[in-house]
Protein backbone atom coordinates (compact mmCIF):
# COMPACT_ATOMS: atom_id res chain seq x y z
CA UNK A 1 0.00 0.00 0.00
CA UNK A 2 3.05 2.26 -0.01
CA UNK A 3 3.91 4.58 -2.90
CA UNK A 4 0.29 5.28 -3.59
CA UNK A 5 0.89 8.32 -5.82
CA UNK A 6 3.28 6.34 -7.99
CA UNK A 7 0.81 3.48 -8.28
CA UNK A 8 -1.89 5.89 -9.31
CA UNK A 9 0.41 7.45 -11.87
CA UNK A 10 1.03 4.03 -13.42
CA UNK A 11 -2.67 3.29 -13.60
CA UNK A 12 -3.21 6.71 -15.18
CA UNK A 13 -0.52 6.03 -17.80
CA UNK A 14 -2.04 2.66 -18.65
CA UNK A 15 -5.40 4.26 -19.21
CA UNK A 16 -3.84 7.01 -21.34
CA UNK A 17 -2.08 4.38 -23.42
CA UNK A 18 -5.31 2.42 -23.88
CA UNK A 19 -7.80 5.17 -24.45
CA UNK A 20 -5.98 8.21 -25.83
CA UNK A 21 -5.99 6.88 -29.44
CA UNK A 22 -9.70 6.23 -29.17
CA UNK A 23 -10.37 9.69 -27.77
CA UNK A 24 -8.34 11.28 -30.56
CA UNK A 25 -10.25 9.25 -33.09
CA UNK A 26 -13.59 10.34 -31.69
CA UNK A 27 -12.52 14.00 -31.50
CA UNK A 28 -11.24 14.08 -35.08
CA UNK A 29 -14.49 12.62 -36.35
CA UNK A 30 -15.99 16.05 -35.63
CA UNK A 31 -13.17 17.92 -37.38
CA UNK A 32 -14.17 19.94 -40.43
CA UNK A 33 -10.70 19.66 -41.96
CA UNK A 34 -10.16 16.55 -44.04
CA UNK A 35 -6.64 16.21 -42.65
CA UNK A 36 -6.10 14.43 -39.37
CA UNK A 37 -3.56 16.95 -38.18
CA UNK A 38 -5.21 20.19 -37.14
CA UNK A 39 -8.58 20.57 -35.53
CA UNK A 40 -10.38 23.35 -37.40
CA UNK A 41 -14.11 23.52 -36.70
CA UNK A 42 -16.77 21.31 -35.19
CA UNK A 43 -18.92 19.55 -37.77
CA UNK A 44 -21.31 16.62 -38.35
CA UNK A 45 -20.38 16.65 -42.05
CA UNK A 46 -18.62 13.27 -41.96
CA UNK A 47 -21.52 11.58 -40.24
CA UNK A 48 -23.85 12.90 -42.92
CA UNK A 49 -21.51 11.62 -45.57
CA UNK A 50 -21.53 8.19 -44.03
CA UNK A 51 -25.28 7.94 -43.96
CA UNK A 52 -25.40 8.94 -47.61
CA UNK A 53 -22.79 6.39 -48.63
CA UNK A 54 -24.85 3.53 -50.07
CA UNK A 55 -21.96 1.15 -50.41
CA UNK A 56 -21.04 1.66 -46.79
CA UNK A 57 -24.59 1.17 -45.54
CA UNK A 58 -24.86 -2.00 -47.57
CA UNK A 59 -21.64 -3.42 -46.17
CA UNK A 60 -22.79 -2.49 -42.69
CA UNK A 61 -26.03 -4.41 -43.19
CA UNK A 62 -24.01 -7.31 -44.58
CA UNK A 63 -21.88 -7.32 -41.44
CA UNK A 64 -24.94 -7.34 -39.21
CA UNK A 65 -26.41 -10.23 -41.15
CA UNK A 66 -23.19 -12.24 -41.13
CA UNK A 67 -22.67 -11.61 -37.42
CA UNK A 68 -26.32 -12.32 -36.62
CA UNK A 69 -26.58 -15.61 -38.51
CA UNK A 70 -23.15 -16.88 -37.50
CA UNK A 71 -23.80 -16.02 -33.84
CA UNK A 72 -27.14 -17.84 -33.75
CA UNK A 73 -25.84 -20.92 -35.57
CA UNK A 74 -22.53 -21.15 -33.72
CA UNK A 75 -24.22 -20.63 -30.35
CA UNK A 76 -26.67 -23.46 -30.97
CA UNK A 77 -24.05 -25.83 -32.38
CA UNK A 78 -21.45 -24.88 -29.78
CA UNK A 79 -23.86 -25.34 -26.87
CA UNK A 80 -24.92 -28.74 -28.17
CA UNK A 81 -21.30 -29.75 -28.68
CA UNK A 82 -20.32 -28.62 -25.18
CA UNK A 83 -23.20 -30.55 -23.63
CA UNK A 84 -22.41 -33.64 -25.68
CA UNK A 85 -18.75 -33.51 -24.73
CA UNK A 86 -19.68 -33.12 -21.08
CA UNK A 87 -22.34 -35.78 -20.95
CA UNK A 88 -21.31 -38.63 -23.20
CA UNK A 89 -18.30 -40.85 -23.42
CA UNK A 90 -17.12 -41.99 -26.80
CA UNK A 91 -13.88 -43.03 -28.46
CA UNK A 92 -11.41 -40.20 -29.15
CA UNK A 93 -13.29 -37.88 -26.82
CA UNK A 94 -10.06 -36.53 -25.34
CA UNK A 95 -8.64 -35.95 -28.78
CA UNK A 96 -11.74 -34.02 -29.76
CA UNK A 97 -11.53 -32.05 -26.54
CA UNK A 98 -8.06 -30.81 -27.40
CA UNK A 99 -8.87 -30.30 -31.09
CA UNK A 100 -11.43 -27.70 -30.03
CA UNK A 101 -8.66 -25.33 -29.03
CA UNK A 102 -6.91 -25.46 -32.39
CA UNK A 103 -9.16 -22.96 -34.17
CA UNK A 104 -8.65 -20.62 -31.20
CA UNK A 105 -4.87 -20.70 -31.26
CA UNK A 106 -4.25 -21.16 -34.99
CA UNK A 107 -3.24 -17.94 -36.83
CA UNK A 108 -6.25 -16.39 -38.53
CA UNK A 109 -4.41 -16.17 -41.79
CA UNK A 110 -3.90 -19.94 -41.84
CA UNK A 111 -7.56 -20.50 -41.07
CA UNK A 112 -8.53 -18.04 -43.81
CA UNK A 113 -6.36 -19.68 -46.45
CA UNK A 114 -7.44 -23.20 -45.51
CA UNK A 115 -11.11 -22.24 -45.62
CA UNK A 116 -10.58 -20.62 -49.00
CA UNK A 117 -8.91 -23.74 -50.36
CA UNK A 118 -11.74 -25.91 -49.11
CA UNK A 119 -14.30 -23.70 -50.82
CA UNK A 120 -12.29 -23.80 -54.04
CA UNK A 121 -11.96 -27.57 -53.77
CA UNK A 122 -15.71 -27.89 -53.27
CA UNK A 123 -16.26 -25.45 -56.12
CA UNK A 124 -18.28 -23.28 -53.78
CA UNK A 125 -18.81 -19.81 -55.20
CA UNK A 126 -17.50 -17.17 -52.82
CA UNK A 127 -19.98 -14.71 -51.37
CA UNK A 128 -21.69 -13.78 -48.13
CA UNK A 129 -22.59 -17.40 -47.46
CA UNK A 130 -18.93 -18.46 -47.44
CA UNK A 131 -18.15 -15.65 -44.98
CA UNK A 132 -21.02 -16.83 -42.77
CA UNK A 133 -19.82 -20.45 -42.85
CA UNK A 134 -16.29 -19.33 -42.00
CA UNK A 135 -17.46 -17.19 -39.11
CA UNK A 136 -19.54 -20.06 -37.76
CA UNK A 137 -16.47 -22.27 -37.99
CA UNK A 138 -14.20 -20.01 -35.96
CA UNK A 139 -16.90 -19.00 -33.46
CA UNK A 140 -17.98 -22.50 -32.39
CA UNK A 141 -14.86 -23.26 -30.28
CA UNK A 142 -15.31 -20.04 -28.33
CA UNK A 143 -18.92 -20.94 -27.57
CA UNK A 144 -17.96 -24.50 -26.59
CA UNK A 145 -15.25 -23.31 -24.23
CA UNK A 146 -17.46 -20.75 -22.55
CA UNK A 147 -20.47 -23.08 -22.20
CA UNK A 148 -18.34 -25.93 -20.96
CA UNK A 149 -16.99 -23.86 -18.10
CA UNK A 150 -20.57 -23.65 -16.78
CA UNK A 151 -21.00 -27.44 -16.82
CA UNK A 152 -19.48 -28.74 -13.59
CA UNK A 153 -19.57 -31.90 -11.52
CA UNK A 154 -22.51 -30.44 -9.64
CA UNK A 155 -24.48 -30.31 -12.87
CA UNK A 156 -24.36 -34.10 -13.02
CA UNK A 157 -26.15 -34.46 -9.67
CA UNK A 158 -28.75 -31.90 -10.74
CA UNK A 159 -29.39 -34.05 -13.78
CA UNK A 160 -29.60 -37.18 -11.68
CA UNK A 161 -31.97 -35.51 -9.25
CA UNK A 162 -34.21 -34.45 -12.13
CA UNK A 163 -34.07 -37.93 -13.61
CA UNK A 164 -34.94 -39.38 -10.21
CA UNK A 165 -38.01 -37.13 -10.17
CA UNK A 166 -39.11 -38.46 -13.54
CA UNK A 167 -37.83 -35.81 -15.95
CA UNK A 168 -37.17 -36.86 -19.55
CA UNK A 169 -33.84 -36.03 -21.17
CA UNK A 170 -35.42 -33.15 -23.07
CA UNK A 171 -36.99 -31.73 -19.89
CA UNK A 172 -33.71 -32.10 -18.02
CA UNK A 173 -31.96 -30.11 -20.73
CA UNK A 174 -34.66 -27.46 -20.99
CA UNK A 175 -35.56 -26.97 -17.33
CA UNK A 176 -32.34 -27.78 -15.51
CA UNK A 177 -29.33 -27.47 -17.80
CA UNK A 178 -30.24 -24.40 -19.85
CA UNK A 179 -30.86 -22.16 -16.80
CA UNK A 180 -27.55 -23.27 -15.31
CA UNK A 181 -25.47 -22.75 -18.45
CA UNK A 182 -27.29 -19.61 -19.63
CA UNK A 183 -24.51 -17.26 -18.49
CA UNK A 184 -22.04 -19.39 -20.45
CA UNK A 185 -24.26 -19.35 -23.52
CA UNK A 186 -24.69 -15.55 -23.31
CA UNK A 187 -20.98 -14.90 -22.98
CA UNK A 188 -20.23 -17.38 -25.77
CA UNK A 189 -22.76 -15.68 -28.05
CA UNK A 190 -21.40 -12.23 -27.17
CA UNK A 191 -17.91 -13.41 -27.99
CA UNK A 192 -19.05 -14.92 -31.28
CA UNK A 193 -20.90 -11.75 -32.23
CA UNK A 194 -18.02 -9.38 -31.50
CA UNK A 195 -15.50 -11.66 -33.22
CA UNK A 196 -17.64 -11.81 -36.33
CA UNK A 197 -18.38 -8.08 -36.25
CA UNK A 198 -14.76 -6.97 -36.58
CA UNK A 199 -13.20 -9.87 -38.44
CA UNK A 200 -11.02 -8.75 -41.36
CA UNK A 201 -8.54 -11.50 -42.12
CA UNK A 202 -10.82 -14.51 -42.53
CA UNK A 203 -13.52 -12.45 -44.25
CA UNK A 204 -10.91 -11.09 -46.63
CA UNK A 205 -10.00 -14.57 -47.81
CA UNK A 206 -13.51 -15.95 -48.03
CA UNK A 207 -15.39 -12.96 -49.43
CA UNK A 208 -16.53 -12.94 -53.03
CA UNK A 209 -17.12 -10.06 -55.39
CA UNK A 210 -19.85 -7.75 -54.14
CA UNK A 211 -19.94 -9.33 -50.70
CA UNK A 212 -18.32 -6.60 -48.69
CA UNK A 213 -18.54 -6.50 -44.92
CA UNK A 214 -17.96 -3.32 -42.96
CA UNK A 215 -14.46 -4.20 -41.73
CA UNK A 216 -13.47 -5.07 -45.28
CA UNK A 217 -14.91 -1.79 -46.54
CA UNK A 218 -13.06 0.21 -43.88
CA UNK A 219 -9.91 -1.65 -44.74
CA UNK A 220 -10.29 -0.62 -48.38
CA UNK A 221 -11.00 2.99 -47.29
CA UNK A 222 -7.77 3.39 -45.36
CA UNK A 223 -5.67 2.13 -48.24
CA UNK A 224 -5.65 5.74 -49.36
CA UNK A 225 -5.01 7.19 -45.91
CA UNK A 226 -7.23 7.71 -42.91
CA UNK A 227 -10.00 10.09 -43.78
CA UNK A 228 -12.35 11.73 -41.25
CA UNK A 229 -15.31 9.67 -42.45
CA UNK A 230 -13.49 6.56 -41.25
CA UNK A 231 -13.17 8.26 -37.90
CA UNK A 232 -16.88 8.99 -37.85
CA UNK A 233 -17.73 5.43 -38.83
CA UNK A 234 -15.55 3.89 -36.14
CA UNK A 235 -17.01 6.28 -33.60
CA UNK A 236 -20.47 4.97 -34.43
CA UNK A 237 -19.28 1.39 -34.16
CA UNK A 238 -17.65 2.18 -30.87
CA UNK A 239 -20.93 3.60 -29.64
CA UNK A 240 -22.88 0.51 -30.70
CA UNK A 241 -20.44 -1.90 -29.02
CA UNK A 242 -20.42 0.27 -25.92
CA UNK A 243 -24.21 0.23 -25.70
CA UNK A 244 -24.43 -3.54 -26.19
CA UNK A 245 -21.76 -4.32 -23.61
CA UNK A 246 -23.20 -1.92 -21.04
CA UNK A 247 -26.65 -3.43 -21.45
CA UNK A 248 -25.31 -6.96 -20.95
CA UNK A 249 -23.27 -5.85 -17.95
CA UNK A 250 -26.29 -4.15 -16.37
CA UNK A 251 -28.54 -7.17 -16.93
CA UNK A 252 -25.95 -9.55 -15.50
CA UNK A 253 -25.17 -7.49 -12.39
CA UNK A 254 -28.89 -7.12 -11.72
CA UNK A 255 -29.30 -10.86 -11.97
CA UNK A 256 -26.33 -11.56 -9.71
CA UNK A 257 -27.64 -9.06 -7.17
CA UNK A 258 -31.08 -10.64 -7.27
CA UNK A 259 -29.62 -14.08 -6.65
CA UNK A 260 -27.29 -12.85 -3.94
CA UNK A 261 -30.06 -11.46 -1.73
Amino acid sequence: MKNRPINNLFIFLVFIFLYLPIIVLVVYSFNSSSMNILFENFTFKWYEEIFNNKELIESFLNTLMVAGISTVVSTILGTMAAYGLYKYNFPFKNLLNSLIYIPIVIPEIVLGISLLSIYTLMRLELGLHTIIISHIAFSIPFVIVSVRSALTRETITYEEAAKDLGASNFKIFKDIIIPIILPGIVSGATLAFTLSLDDVVISYFTAGPGSNTLPLYIYSMIKTGITPDVNALTTIMLLIVFIILTTIAIIQTRKIRKEAI
Binding site: T157, Y158, E160, A161, D164, A167, D175, P179, I180
Partner: peptide, 20 residues
Protein backbone atom coordinates in the same frame (compact mmCIF):
# COMPACT_ATOMS: atom_id res chain seq x y z
CA UNK B 1 -35.35 -46.57 -16.22
CA UNK B 2 -34.73 -44.40 -13.14
CA UNK B 3 -37.45 -42.00 -14.28
CA UNK B 4 -40.06 -44.74 -14.07
CA UNK B 5 -39.15 -46.29 -10.70
CA UNK B 6 -41.33 -45.41 -7.74
CA UNK B 7 -38.26 -44.61 -5.72
CA UNK B 8 -36.81 -41.23 -4.86
CA UNK B 9 -33.40 -40.19 -3.67
CA UNK B 10 -32.17 -37.47 -1.38
CA UNK B 11 -28.68 -36.82 -2.63
CA UNK B 12 -25.59 -36.26 -0.59
CA UNK B 13 -25.24 -32.66 -1.77
CA UNK B 14 -29.06 -32.42 -1.90
CA UNK B 15 -28.92 -31.23 -5.54
CA UNK B 16 -31.62 -28.63 -5.15
CA UNK B 17 -32.04 -26.94 -8.52
CA UNK B 18 -30.24 -23.62 -8.05
CA UNK B 19 -32.26 -21.59 -10.53
CA UNK B 20 -35.65 -22.63 -9.14
Amino acid sequence: DATKREVNTIFQNLALFPKM
